[in-house]
Design a protein around this nucleic acid. Structure first.
Lengths: 152, 152
DNA sequence: TCAAGCTTGATGCAATTGCATCTATCGTCT
DNA sequence: AGACGATAGATGCAATTGCATCAAGCTTGA
């Protein structure tokens, strides 16, 4: 496990699998959403975070931390979400620069509809392919690849 | 492991980890290439396939099968690669529609330079985090998520 | 208090992606 | 041969992304 310039064959294979499978799965899920006439996955990620945050909402920079999207990406995504009435932008009292984003009723509804499709994709693409123990093992191993690493 | 509309918590967690970690790792690798003044990962994928194919080259539709890129994406990528002198487009004898793409000497050289950086990323981001056995396990588990599945 | 630097979020512009469609050629069937 | 559908690859146009930069507000420190 020492740092080397040239990766082991096992590392190369794991990397290749990871890249290929994740892309394939993501595209499948994306396709299912599109087929249902629903917005793309990125919207779900944001709506999910906002739904979990509740009425207090979140600041855009918090969304950036949680979703890993780029700043300009979030900025424009929020513009679209607001234009569609899925979120509200509220001024924040103690910081004139900032704003608080709160999910709107329509946003919760769209998120619900998206989850019906997205959740089904997850169940079919992942839940149906591996046992609970195997899924837990995948999570644990992938967790150690994060930065910072975590094994939970 | 029956098909359900609502995925298990284990499936959701594994999915989330997979999406998040793969994106994070990809971005790290991409960033390393950019920092080295080298082209993006997509170029590597194509050059890699072409290098493996050897002098015979590959048809664009074969590249699509191997890399999972969209047709228009490959078409434009090849235009750029050719413009940079990394590949050659050759007419193919028995099919007037098609062409054969062959990697050029400069393409091999760029690929070599990219691998120096990319390989290091893989070694650091993956090879240094998990043992060989664990990496093999990751590959096997992810392999079962492919379509079609494979466990090798 | 006010200048200098940092943080938050937006935006102009170029490059890329996605979608739909197009052209050209091929293969097949009559 | 000729028509019809399928396949290979390119491309116009709209949407999105990435990069760099900007404007506005905050914080600190002399």
């Amino acid at each position: 496990m020492t740092e080397k310039a040239t990766p082991s064959p096992e590392a190369i294979k794991a990397w290749a699998r990871l890249m290929r499978v994740s892309r394939q799965l993501m595209e499948s899920a994306e396709e299912a959403l599109k087929a249902a006439g629903l917005p793309p996955l990125a919207w779900y990620d944001v709506l999910h975070e906002l739904a979990e945050a509740g009425e207090g909402g979140l600041r855009p920079f918090q969304l950036i931390e949680r979703t890993l999207f780029a700043q300009y990406n979030i900025s424009r995504l929020l513009t679209r979400l607001e234009a569609d009435g899925l979120v509200e932008k509220l001024p924040v009292a103690d910081d004139g620069r900032g704003q608080t984003i709160r999910i709107a009723a329509k946003g919760r509804e769209i998120r619900r509809q998206m989850w019906a499709v997205y959740g089904r994709s997850i169940a079919e693409l992942v839940g149906a392919k591996l046992s609970a123990d195997e899924l837990t093992m995948v999570s644990a191993l992938l967790g150690r690849l994060r930065h910072p690493p975590a094994g939970d």
